[in-house]
Design a protein around this nucleic acid. Structure first.
Lengths: 264, 264
DNA sequence: CGAAATTTTGATCACGTTCAACTTCAGTGG
DNA sequence: CCACTGAAGTTGAACGTGATCAAAATTTCG
């Protein structure tokens, strides 16, 4: 079997999470084997099931292999705010597992396939192979970046700009894991979910969606969305996808073991 | 000199950043020395100076020793959204330095004292001492957690709830670095800054502030804020401070392979 | 002291919420 | 095959929160 083919098959087999890590850092087969040895058997979760519950301790990292979920918080007044949408390649339990008790819930929006790993095991891996500690930092930084973008969205953009931005972001992220065509994708969430993510009411969201259609920026039938005038959409949304740098590689090990460093 | 006293003096000398790291993980003197050797000389920055500019590459980590800054984005329509307020112990360049180009600006809201370190040096440190890679993950996760809380704030809370939450959060964070009394603190930001952080207009923010005063929840003269009825304030804000777990310690090194790593 | 930044107050208005009803569609069992 | 169900999407009318613009009062600082 040609090498290239085997690589692709491997990545399919390894799943979207490792594909994503490879965008930050090179992983040797030994790295991957070590990581895989931590994973419990695949977990299947049905639609509408809660994966994490606000207020309870949670100390796992779950890598989404397939399906969609949402991280959210329920307020006393019954309103729900969705903080992020989780797609294949994303991590459940980031940042919730770093807290004494999770401060958000995570719910499956569709049937899902997950790979589960205990946080402690992963941390142990990070001590063994420091590159995974860095990878974890990068993942967390990515998360923070997306949240920051969402703050901008909700804080200072009009409802229609938010919606445009949301559509572009989801499409962009689906593309990165090979789940969307260039101008055309299957929206993985209902309007209710979108409105809770964007801090809008369902009726208003619906109207804005209709307006985007009416203005000829998108076409939509059912949940299939097509970007008709993507340029205009990006302009309206101030869309500017953030790209993470790669993680610098380890410096060549110093010949004498670090003597120069300790001035104390 | 008694040990305890020396410890405290050390931490004062080391600055609030190391104090903060110690809340996540134990640091041996050798760890600290190694970290300190990366730091360039202290940097003083005047009020209103930009530390990071949106759109430019930035590859440093700056630890705030003193002063206050804001991470923000300016939109085309002239509005500004502040994503986070940086206090002593916080890190400039997280997550901006992980991107090809920073997607936010950071501006000093007061005169500041910073300790600067290049990201590449810090990453090299993480390879040498994996605990720092984990610490970096924890810092980034903390950042993400605060952002998430801000999303809830802006998305689903009323303006007065937001304001209450903001006051409680800032007070809580100032307390952790020993810059606030129990019910009483110096607000380090102007109303304009607050309004940009909370996605409100200045007049409206001002009115809500007046309302909190009128309702007997806080007292304020100039920028000194006193919590009169903190219970009510916390209830109104749904305030629930998130506490990060400590980072698990390294497992006992396996007998044969890891000897090369342990310098101390 | 004078200039600039900040805080306070007032009047008007629009964006987005709320609540309610209705439509559409997929799935399910009689 | 049709009736029933429940979830999701669509539409309309009335209301209210918070924005906007303007100007005054106050504080801070060079």
């Amino acid at each position: 079997m040609p090498n290239v083919v085997r690589k692709v098959l491997n990545d399919n087999w390894n799943g979207p999470f490792i594909t994503r890590l490879r965008r930050y850092i090179d992983l040797a087969p030994a790295d991957i084997a070590d990581l895989r040895s931590l994973l419990e058997s695949d977990l299947n979760v049905g639609k509408r099931r809660d994966l994490v519950v606000d207020g309870y301790e949670y100390r796992k990292l779950c890598f989404v292999r397939d399906g969609v979920a949402a991280r959210y918080k329920l307020l006393r007044n019954g309103k729900r705010q969705i903080v992020s949408i989780l797609l294949p390649g994303d991590v459940v339990g980031l940042p919730g597992s770093f807290l004494d008790q999770a401060n958000f819930s995570v719910i499956a929006l569709s049937d899902m396939k997950l790979e589960v790993c205990s946080l402690d095991d992963f941390v142990a891996l990070c001590y063994r192979r420091p590159k995974f500690g860095l990878a974890l930092s990068w993942l967390a930084a990515h998360e923070a970046t997306m949240y920051a973008e969402r703050i901008i969205d909700i804080g200072r953009r009009t409802s229609i700009e938010r919606l445009a931005h949301f559509l572009l972001e989801i499409h962009c992220r689906l593309r990165l894991v090979g789940r969307a065509a260039e101008n055309d994708f299957e929206l993985p969430v209902s309007q209710e979910v979108m409105s809770d993510a964007l801090g809008l009411s369902v009726p208003h969201l619906n109207r804005m969606l209709a307006k985007l259609r009416g203005d000829g920026m998108i076409a939509a039938e059912g949940r299939r969305v097509t970007f008709v005038d993507r340029k205009a959409l990006q302009l309206m949304a101030h869309f500017q996808p953030a790209t993470l740098t790669r993680i610098p590689v380890a410096p060549a090990p110093a010949a004498p073991p670090l003597r120069a460093l300790a001035p104390s």
